[in-house]
Design a protein around this nucleic acid. Structure first.
Lengths: 344, 344
DNA sequence: TGCTTGACTTGGATCGTTCCAAAAAGTAAT
DNA sequence: ATTACTTTTTGGAACGATCCAAGTCAAGCA
């Protein structure tokens, strides 16, 4: 527990060659003679040598880590995302520096500052709600590639910055869900839940409005019903849907958690989703498939998104010159029983 | 995007002092004169200096990161755990090196090797199922403090190693749940789900057996019914509970996911948990409170566990000499409707 | 004036690697 | 034995910080 760490010098001394030779062996260079290589390798094993990547990185002026900063790890969507990103980064020989911000922009500043001191090769950032782009740019500087995921900070000079941006096709997805409900004959369709100041929520609501506009219908029940993006808060606010007659017959929910909460809320009013009222979600979290009734939703495959984000930031690390990419990833409508009810 | 990183030397040159002085200012030493300090500080800001912790750590022969290796990040329990650990580590000025192993011992070896090269101050490890203690010891060596969480690897020389161990009070928890069912009058109680080769599962089953033994009752329905610790697999195996008459009237489930799966399985047989059959879970995942019916379970507060693990490993980093600690954290029985049914 | 004191400041060595130019060792032909 | 190679090995200078012993300089005092 207390002996000094074994270094290249120890190995070199141990088998009578120079530090440089050991280094060559270590990195699999073809230069060292076969018997030298063998001698060194047994010595490495014998002394239990552990490579010190920090020292190597210092000399080589490059980094072997990528920072992954998420706004809410306890959200299964982001947990899966993180797992996918870590998987892809690890496969590419990078190590993941984790930071979680709990949706606090202040904590996010602290976390990013600390991570920057570890000189990450790149940063994958899913910003906390209400993040200020200028503050972020201040901290992140212009040396490190950044991939912004899922949400847009306010006041970002996208034209000036070289940040990549990757988001779900929120607008398109909500439009798909709404069209699906329209096809089942619903005419009074509400958009339910989420915070109006979250960009993903605004986009989803826009997609919903798009579909209604094409069908020549009005937004129900007028002003948006805001909730925290959680089951509990959604359940608590579900009564607001029925405040004015005629009540809607279907709701496009901000995400699955909200949809599951709404289904609970419906149950307490004696309504059953899929029979008396149609509900759609967003994300396709694992519970969506096994809830009662199973939830119609939009699959986003967060683990694949994590891998995608990792792949893209590594691409950017390798080619820093190229233009920033703004991408949106397609989502897939998964039709289940919660939207089964049709209106004559 | 391509300019060199700003170093202490640049700052020193920029304001006509020595590197050492800048370093003193940076670390808030009282030595530098007030006006020197001010001069340096404006220069730091002007050039946009970013501290290079790797270089500092190299010189100081210490580390400012802790590795966190979990077996399954997509499991909400571990996601919360990771969030809690990261929170506490961050607050102490450490950065979290994330590794996720997807329950694969091979991947775990790779991940740990890679993390070790980054010289973490300590390691929090929730081992993949089937981890081999000797292989782990081989990689981790004896220099770095390790806290094993939640599961015991096979073949660990606990007496020889200085690893700390932190686990839930699995045995005690399952015993509590079983006693609770006994108090409600149940006499034929099964233990349902989980893998027999997972140590947490074996412990829970032992607690269950303890309670039955005290009551002088037999284990139902004899051999353990094994399932993957997921909803789907549990639902698929639930019929096995009713293979022999008389069937059990209650089940202590390996965890919440299994319990929720079992409730689904019961539903397909026309049985309702809490009315026709009593069910308990383990973990108190967020859904447990809002399922239908709400699930009686054991609260473990994974976020607090994460903080606790972080606190302990940091304690160990500060005092490497002290003896290893084997700790178990208490769990709390949360009684909800799923176990409401009483037997006359 | 010289000498001590205290408040600041500094150059050089160091951490564990990699890079590089050049030395050493081996081989073959003259 | 000398030259002209090729193959292998090597010492020393980086990388960007910290530590430490020693330096400067003005004030204070005899």
């Amino acid at each position: 527990m207390n002996t000094r760490r074994v270094t290249l010098n120890d190995i070199a001394r141990g088998c009578g060659v120079s530090r440089a030779t050991v280094s060559l062996v270590l990195r699999g260079s073809p230069l060292p003679a076969a018997d030298t290589r063998a001698k060194v390798q047994t010595e490495l094993k014998k002394q239990g040598y552990v490579y010190n990547r920090a020292a190597a990185n210092l000399r080589q002026r490059r980094s072997s880590s990528v920072a992954l900063v998420v706004n809410d790890l306890s959200n299964p969507f982001f947990a899966e995302f993180a797992a996918g990103a870590d998987e892809a980064l690890g496969a590419a020989g990078y190590v993941t520096l984790l930071g979680s911000t709990s949706e606090s922009p202040e904590r996010q500043q602290t976390v990013l500052t600390s991570l920057m001191e570890h000189d990450p090769a790149g940063i994958i950032l899913s910003p906390a709600e209400g993040s200020d782009g200028e503050a972020l740019q201040q901290i992140l500087g212009t040396h490190v590639p950044v991939l912004v995921f899922n949400r847009e900070p306010t006041r970002v000079q996208w034209t000036a910055s070289h940040w990549d941006y990757l988001a779900l096709a929120n607008r398109r997805g909500a439009e798909l869900a709404t069209r699906h409900l329209l096809e089942r004959g619903h005419r009074r369709i509400a958009f339910f839940g989420g915070h109006a100041d979250s960009s993903s929520c605004r986009e989803r609501r826009r997609g919903y409005a798009d579909a209604l506009a094409v069908a020549g219908l009005a937004i129900e029940p007028g002003p948006m019903i805001e909730t925290a993006p959680t089951r509990l808060d959604a359940a608590a606010h579900s009564a607001a849907l029925f405040a004015h007659a005629p009540a809607p017959t279907a709701a496009v929910c901000y995400n699955d958690a909200v949809a599951l909460g709404l289904m609970l809320g419906l149950a307490t009013r004696g309504l059953r989703a899929g029979r008396d009222f149609a509900v759609t979600g967003f994300d396709d979290i694992p519970e969506a498939a096994v809830s009662t009734p199973p939830l119609t939703t939009l699959a986003t495959d967060p683990r694949a998104r994590g891998r995608q984000a990792a792949t893209r930031i590594l691409e950017r690390v390798r080619h820093p010159g190229t233009d920033a990419v703004r991408g949106s990833v397609p989502v897939r409508l998964i039709i289940r029983a919660s939207s089964e009810v049709t209106i004559a």
